[in-house]
């Protein structure tokens, strides 16, 4: 995944927004297959063997959704068999599978998102646009380890005074509250210090560690263009697909599906390229 980290963090975030805005909401099976294939490929590249559990879970979700949807929905003309009085239809089964597919692709893409984008990246992207929010988030992320340390300290003090080591609601609550009362005044101190050092003044500036380069702009432009092309096709109605009462015959537009497939497997190009360069171009001495 470090191969994707050579870009400004805006690039992968924009990319994920492009992919997920389509794959999660579309009901076109071709687009869903594309996103699922791209997502699984990327997940395996990024996480390797650790992705197996998620993939099994997704397969289970799809199977369960597909099997149970016809029990709730009785539309569709191709009856497979009857459950009680109500028909169990092929169309509803496939529609359930497609719903399961969109949930699975959501999970898979978010898993890739979590692996590629760290907290620092999120702060780097939003720090300039939403300074107050970013400030609060970074304060929270700073407080959590401090509070944990304080909590452990207080807990060990309790152990020292001979309290039983078995966790109980009462003891945990007592230590937790002690933690709050210890930290709350220290925290007000921080706010006074912020005030003293000019918080809220207009002349404050924001230092940015990274620079947005031409390479990043190019890397944003490509997925954005592909995404817009897909949306244009979707809007034009060429990708409309319906399950009820019969499966629609059309809905397959080669150009649009190619666009979306390309969008979904775009990062794989970068990964393969970087791996190739790493293996085959030894440093010139």
């Amino acid at each position: 995944m470090c191969y994707l980290k050579t870009f400004d963090p805006t690039v992968p975030m924009m990319y994920f927004a492009c992919v997920m805005s389509i794959c999660v909401f579309t009901s076109n099976p071709y687009l869903q297959a594309c996103s699922l294939a791209g997502g699984i490929m990327l997940l395996i590249f990024v996480k390797g063997r650790r992705s197996v559990r998620l993939l099994i879970g997704c397969a289970l979700i799809m199977a369960v959704m597909g099997a149970t949807n016809p029990l709730f929905v009785h539309r569709g003309l191709t009856e497979l068999f009857f459950v009680g009085d109500s028909p169990y239809t092929l169309e509803a089964l496939l529609y359930g599978l497609s719903l399961g597919c969109s949930i699975a692709s959501l999970l898979i893409w978010f898993s890739v998102f979590n692996a590629v984008i760290s907290q620092d990246d999120i702060l780097a992207v939003f720090g300039k646009r939403l300074p107050k929010t970013a400030l609060v988030i970074s304060m929270i992320l700073g407080f959590i380890p401090k509070l944990r340390r304080k909590y452990t300290e207080l807990l060990h003090a309790q152990y020292g005074s001979g309290v039983s080591r078995k966790p109980s609601l009462k003891r945990t609550a007592a230590v937790f509250t002690a933690c709050l009362s210890a930290q709350s005044e220290r925290v007000i101190d921080i706010s006074m210090s912020m005030k003293a050092r000019g918080y809220g003044l207009k002349s404050r500036t924001f230092a940015h560690r990274r620079r947005f380069r031409k390479k990043d702009a190019a890397a944003i432009a490509v997925p954005l263009a592909l995404c817009i092309a897909c949306f244009v096709y979707i809007g034009s109605g060429k990708l409309d697909y319906w399950y009820y009462p019969r499966l629609s015959p059309g809905g397959f537009e080669p150009a649009a599906v190619m666009c979306y497939l390309l969008l979904c497997i775009l990062p794989v190009f970068f990964i393969v390229k970087e791996k190739f360069l790493w293996r085959n171009c030894p440093a010139k001495t």
Binding site: M139, I140, I144, T172, M194, Y199
Partner: peptide, 20 residues
């Protein structure tokens, strides 16, 4: 400034609560 700090502290407390 205190509003931000209290928001940060209490959010951190409830995340900590979820952990402990």
């Amino acid at each position: 400034a205190w509003e931000l700090v209290i928001v940060a502290l209490m959010s951190a407390m409830s995340v900590l609560g979820r952990i402990v």
